[in-house]
Computed example of a mutant assay.
Amino acid sequence: MKTIQTQVRYVEWLSPKDMHLASQEWLSELKFIKDEHLFFEDLITTFTSQLIESGKFSENKEIIDAVNRSQKRNNLLIEAIKVHENDLQIMVDGIDQLDEEKAYTKEHSGLMIAIADFLKEYKSLKTQLFSIIKKIKKEDKQKHLIDKK
Rank of each mutant, 00 (worst) to 15 (best):
D117L: 04
T105D: 13
L125Y: 06
A80P: 07
H108S: 15
K106L: 11
E100R: 12
M112K: 09
K120V: 00
L129Y: 11
Q128Y: 08
H84C: 01
K135N: 14
I133Y: 03
M112G: 04
I136E: 12
D99Y: 12
A103S: 11
K106C: 04
M91P: 12
I81V: 13
A80Q: 10
I95Y: 05
I81N: 03
I132D: 09
Q128R: 05
H108I: 04
T105L: 14
E121H: 05
F118I: 01
I90T: 11
A103I: 11
K126Q: 05
E85Y: 15
K120N: 08
Q97N: 13
G94Q: 05
T127Q: 12
K106W: 07
D93G: 10
L119Y: 00
M112E: 08
L88A: 11
A116P: 04
N86T: 06
K134W: 13
L119C: 01
F130S: 00
T105C: 11
A103K: 14
K135D: 15
K82W: 08
K123T: 06
G94A: 12
L119W: 01
I78Y: 01
H84K: 06
E107D: 07
D93K: 14
V92E: 12
A80V: 00
H108F: 15
I132Q: 06
I78K: 00
E107P: 00
L125E: 04
S131F: 15
K123P: 02
I136A: 09
A114Q: 08
M91H: 07
I133E: 10
A103G: 05
Q97C: 07
E100D: 11
K82C: 06
M112Q: 10
G110K: 03
I136R: 10
K120P: 02
S124H: 13
K134R: 15
K82E: 13
Q128E: 15
E121C: 00
Q97L: 08
S124W: 07
K134G: 15
K120L: 04
H84R: 06
H84E: 05
Y104S: 02
